[in-house]
């Protein structure tokens, strides 16, 4: 029964115009960035690396260059030398996929926010909630099916973006780079890692923020039955959450705010000391449960008088 409910929600989503607009935009943006992004697989990567080392060495020897630039040059040289020593071929598709990751995630977040905002609020604004809730199905099941469906649709769009990028990028720059190794910094030294693994991991960790915001959207949509409010607040949270956190750093309770933890989990960089993966997971988990609980309680108790 629960799957039938999710199926129902998926159908509604697939018939909304906004769904198709978002999908179309994603496809257009991925293709534009692929074919007009100036990406080109070099004919001889090793030679380019040698050239790069020479150029950076020259920078190191110059007089009026500041320390930062020199440090960067130093790192570049170290990396290039590591690549040459371990016979790791540089692939442009790595740069291309890293550049595209943020865009795909942004589309996923935006898409998910719109779906989550509409899924409950629009049933109320159009009055369809009445015929939905007079079926022999517990209200919470209906609500959860909407939530799961919103996540499912978002995952579908993300998958579309990823596959499209891989295929378009592969066609332009060659497919073998996707599964090839590349060098990553681990602590203070370089290690070899499969590119797809590195990329996938960072992709999934970057999804924590959208997932969190979409859950928040869903709660607002359920509590206030307004999709405009839900979209507005969620966008503010998505773009402004980290900025707002900066202003709260002087308080000790900042460690209980959500965005600092998402930033930490995604990038391992933190604005405060003493962060651990488990503490961050617990704080975020608590927020997640709180959002769902608020949504469920209000939905369960609500008098539907439309």
């Amino acid at each position: 029964m629960f799957f039938k409910l999710i199926h129902n929600e998926n159908i509604k989503t697939s018939f909304r115009l906004s769904t198709w607009i978002m999908m179309g935009l994603l496809v257009v943006f991925v293709l534009l960035s692929t074919f007009f992004g100036g990406y080109k697989q070099p004919a001889d990567g090793q030679a380019d690396l040698q050239k790069g080392i020479k150029k950076n060495t020259a920078i190191l020897n110059e007089k009026d260059v500041d320390e930062d630039t020199k440090a960067t040059a130093q790192k570049e040289i170290a990396k290039s030398e590591y690549l040459l020593a371990n016979n790791i071929k540089p692939y442009t598709i790595h740069t291309y996929l890293n550049d595209g990751q943020g865009m795909i995630i942004f589309f996923g977040a935006f898409f998910g926010i719109i779906i989550a905002a509409n899924s409950v609020a629009s049933e109320f604004s159009t009055g369809t909630i009445k015929l939905l809730l007079i079926r022999p199905i517990h209200r919470l099941k209906i609500l959860l099916s909407k939530y799961v469906s919103a996540l499912f649709s978002t995952a579908f769009l993300l998958l579309l973006g990823v596959l499209l990028s891989l295929i378009a990028g592969g066609l332009l720059l060659g497919f073998e780079g996707i599964t090839a190794s590349h060098a990553v910094m681990q602590g203070d030294h370089m290690v070899k890692e499969t590119f797809l693994y590195t990329w996938g991991k960072s992709f999934l960790l970057s999804l924590i923020l959208p997932f969190f915001v979409i859950t928040f959207t869903f709660m607002i949509s359920t509590v206030f039955r307004s999709n405009g409010l839900a979209i507005g607040l969620s966008m503010a949270a998505y773009f402004g959450g980290n900025i707002a956190t900066v202003f709260l750093l002087k308080y000790t309770w900042v460690k209980y705010t959500p965005f600092i933890h998402m930033e930490y989990l995604a990038s391992e960089e933190s604005l405060i000391k003493g962060m651990t993966t488990s503490f961050s997971s617990i704080v975020l988990g608590a927020y997640f449960l709180l959002f769902l609980a608020i949504a469920m309680i209000t939905f369960k108790k609500r008098d539907v008088a439309i």
Binding site: I11, K12, R16, T126, G127, T128, K130, L131, I134, I306
Partner: peptide, 14 residues
């Protein structure tokens, strides 16, 4: 129970 409450509001896009 089968019911219509006030208007029979349905999904217009379906």
């Amino acid at each position: 129970v089968g019911a219509i409450v006030e208007n029979p509001d349905m999904y217009k896009f379906l």
